[in-house]
Design a protein around this nucleic acid. Structure first.
Lengths: 148, 148
DNA sequence: CTGCTACATTTGTATATACAATTGTTGTAA
DNA sequence: TTACAACAATTGTATATACAAATGTAGCAG
């Protein structure tokens, strides 16, 4: 992706600004591709993220603040995000018996199955996005990203 | 920024997935910081982007499709984005005399002035975001981003 | 036990965004 | 010249998101 061409500018962009813009452009690409991959499942990136967090819990229920803490892109209203996953039948939610302020959220069987399907598509998408990267490219990129 | 720590996972994340997640996390940081910088001006990143595009036009008016084409993060409703800039007095909009389907959007004096103020804050924010990067780091990062 | 503060989630509401349908304009083929 | 397709922007509407206020619960000082 050529930055100047994409944003149609002829003037030279200072390196620091160009870097920021470049990051944004790539991120848009990433988000678009993942959204396309998840579209058949009628699910957003954040919803997918929550499903994966729940799987990582290995049956141990999660409450809302835990989810919010672990989400890649945090959002201001996790309640309603979980509402949507519930209405799809992917998770269930009960109030925590030991502390009735909290809730316990779990993956359902249906959620687990769907997530397994999504995994395949997502793996393909990740691979496609990164197909020009060698392992050492990726390591280098991760090192550079650490500087942010 | 340590990925595993941030998303609170103990399991090892495959390198390709980690790379994608890392990109997203850094992008969130970038967006948050820029949003904070622009908050005093009561303007969004995309609105700021449009103002800069208009300045790049050097007085030559832009129409909506031009703006949309050049925006870093394109959106589905540039009309209403421009509405907001108009209501702030930063731009004006007339229908194009030579082709009445199009519009001509221009920066106002007020918009130009405000943009100049925003430049300062934005330069600081960019510098702060990239303060751990040497020039060669940035060049390297840009090269790697080209692979997406 | 009472009153108070902190906690965890939910709800209300205003704003933002996506997507499709609509409006008005232009160019052009018959 | 008329009819029609393509174009450019706008509008309607459903959904998403942010932010603040409200609800209900727990813990704790006195």
């Amino acid at each position: 992706m050529n930055v100047e061409e994409r944003i149609k500018t002829k003037e030279q962009i200072p390196l620091d600004r160009r870097t920021i813009i470049h990051m944004m452009l790539v991120n848009n690409t990433i988000n678009e591709q993942i959204a396309i991959a998840l579209k058949p499942f009628d699910i957003s990136i954040q919803q997918f993220n929550v499903l994966r967090i729940l799987r990582g819990q290995k049956g141990k229920p999660a409450n809302l603040s835990t989810l919010n803490e672990r989400m890649v892109t945090r959002m201001s209203n996790t309640t309603r995000l979980v509402d949507k996953l519930m209405s799809k039948g992917y998770v269930d939610r009960i109030t925590c018996p030991s502390n009735r302020r909290k809730v316990e959220i779990n993956l359902t069987k249906k959620g687990t199955d769907k997530l397994l399907e999504m995994d395949k598509t997502m793996a393909q998408t990740e691979a496609a996005l990164l197909n020009q990267f060698s392992d050492s490219d990726m390591k280098q990129l991760n090192l550079l990203l650490n500087k942010f």
